[in-house]
Design a protein around this nucleic acid. Structure first.
Lengths: 183, 183
DNA sequence: ACCTGAACACCGTTCAAGT
DNA sequence: ACCTGAACACCGTTCAAGT
């Protein structure tokens, strides 16, 4: 079969799930496709572009919350976290691609749009959305990073339950946004 | 001069500042010290341990906030962010070492301790502190990651002003904590 | 247009051997 | 105790050459 961008991205995603971001090399992707490493460079300018394609698929057809009730906001946060958790090192991949500004619309853009449509002060919707998303990324990065270091055998002792942390954080953020949106 | 752990860490820090985390290799650290790469492995078990030493120095003698007024909390957040910004890729380095649980006390531990001493509900101090720290790390990671990708020449268009985002985020978090601490 | 082969300039880590 | 030399098994990327 011919080498296509989407076949390459799908193969990369499979390697990510099976072996993690550290083992997601151009050589390994090419090997899994039965191609020479250099072949990938006809389809992607560099490794970052390829990773951007994987990250885009990871959060494909994510929408902003439909309504801005506390429950809907909280559910959206959990959905974003679950998408990141669904793939090994998902948070690290997505946050690095977001940092490069290679992924649009960003999850924060989607959330900000929903906030504005619900009457949230326009100037504050962006910063508020990025606050929420940075917490979700920071939290999930930590959680997946610990799992990664366990497998490498370099991890220190385990910390507190991440699910409790996440639920608490989302509740406090949602309460803060509600106070702001109505105030 | 003899190779010591602290001389190695200091050299690594200098390379980090000058060239960034991607160029902070064992071979380059050894080269800067006039030693063979393998020499580092007598002093550190692996690269992660060496990086943990650099991260520890980066946040050395950081204290929790002395009082838990909104101003003191906000100032502490800015201080942590400034420490991360003071070294190239500081947030990426610190968050990866934190994820491995190789750094104690963590910034979140320090903040949680201050919160508890000020009468914050004990069970919530940890989650609250980690919410704050994950936002700070997520935010700073994004900011320094964009700077990094600019230098690599793979960056997309710039986003909004990060200082405004940070100030907004800290204000909302501090308001949320105050509501919780007194409620 | 699409891909290979070979090369360039790197990595982290191990381990026998030296002093 | 502390370090070197050499090796092992890798990287991302480029580029002439093939089809």
């Amino acid at each position: 079969m011919a080498l296509t961008r989407s076949a390459i991205v799908a193969t990369a995603m499979a390697i990510l799930d099976a072996f993690g971001l550290a083992d997601l090399s151009m050589r390994r992707i090419a090997g899994a496709l039965g191609a020479a490493p250099a072949a990938l460079y006809w389809h992607f300018a560099n490794k970052q572009s390829l990773l951007a394609g994987v990250a885009a698929e990871l959060i494909a057809d994510l929408d902003g919350p439909a309504t801005i009730t506390p429950d809907a906001l909280s559910e959206w946060c959990h959905e974003l976290r679950d998408r990141l958790l669904a793939h090994r090192d998902g948070a690290e991949l997505v946050s690095s691609v977001l940092a490069m500004r290679l992924l649009e619309p960003t999850p924060a853009d989607l959330l900000a749009g929903s906030l504005i449509r619900a009457g949230f002060p326009t100037a504050e919707a962006g910063p508020a959305a990025r606050l929420v998303v940075h917490f979700i990324l920071g939290h999930t990065l930590d959680r997946q990073g610990y799992a990664q270091s366990l497998q490498l055998g370099v991890a220190g002792p385990a910390g507190p339950d991440p699910d409790e942390d996440f639920t608490y954080g989302v509740r406090l953020l949602v309460a803060g946004l509600s106070a702001n949106g109505t105030g």
